[in-house]
Design a protein around this nucleic acid. Structure first.
Lengths: 148, 148
DNA sequence: CATAAAAGATTGCGAACGCAAGTAATATGC
DNA sequence: GCATATTACTTGCGTTCGCAATCTTTTATG
């Protein structure tokens, strides 16, 4: 019985923690966003009408619907998202990306792309980065909401 | 300018979230531990005298010292860890693994190994799992506290 | 040797989160 | 057609966490 899967999972947890603390700082000071808020905006950007219901967002963010409700509240106040209702189903409350949100998410994406490149700048070949990304993608294969 | 690094980072975040929600449930119901608590015990297990100061634990867990203080409190009550002081430096308050903690962490490790194997059981070759683990390990290369 | 600086640990405070319960609207079954 | 179940969302409550301030102890500096 090999321990390779266990090692891989442990390394995954550690790598994610490192990335999170590397990215959170600049994301907050430059754009005033938490990492989860940035992901929320990026999911909206990729959604068909640039809007998603709270449960759909929750699934994509691996969060609870209540968390999404509370995350959307301040972002609605600052005008990044807007609340939309569905005329055919009054239960639905879409979180919709506004123009301001669309502008911001573009800048956020640039920041994240630059930071991501820095993460692999030393001692990583393009092939290695690509291979890692591909393997990681297979773990979440089948999930909806591709952010890239 | 390629977007491969960005894609890799996004996939890393998503994969970690998936793993966390896959593992947390069983870890809590079977062993009564959160994932972070399990990692804390495993770090102690690998430490020289099976004990670490709170700041050392904080670095290994990517958490703040105050978080470690608060995490250790209930685990001390349940007898998994014990508080030890250093006769040569009265500032230090070690978190030391007890016999009960040592026993538990062994079972926890078995659970995590089994779950990890399940994660890659379908559609993954041994070589792929090994390659993924190796690449992830390079992200956190240089950090102390190997858990495997 | 005295004073300053640094390090480890703890606590108050506020922010973020999940769960469970509750409300409102739609879907399903007889 | 009406009762029941399901779905979407929200809110109360408790838990967890980081930051900043504080205290104690050790180390550095003059």
């Amino acid at each position: 019985m090999s321990k390779a899967p266990f090692t891989t999972v442990i390394n995954l947890l550690r790598a994610e923690a490192l990335v999170q603390e590397r990215f959170a700082g600049e994301l907050g000071s430059v754009h005033g966003l938490a990492l989860n808020e940035a992901l929320l905006l990026m999911h909206l950007e990729k959604a068909p009408l640039r809007r998603l219901t709270r449960v759909d967002l929750a699934k994509r963010l691996h969060a609870s619907p209540s968390t999404v409700t509370r995350m959307a509240m301040p972002m609605e106040k600052t005008g990044l998202v807007a609340r939309q209702s569905d005329p055919r189903d009054a239960r639905l409350a879409y979180v919709a990306l506004t123009e301001a949100g669309l502008t911001l998410v573009g800048e956020v994406r640039k920041t994240l792309e630059r930071r991501s490149a820095e993460l692999f700048r030393d001692r990583w070949s393009d092939a290695e980065v690509g291979s890692l990304g591909k393997l990681l993608g297979r773990i979440t294969a089948g999930e909806l909401g591709d952010l890239v």
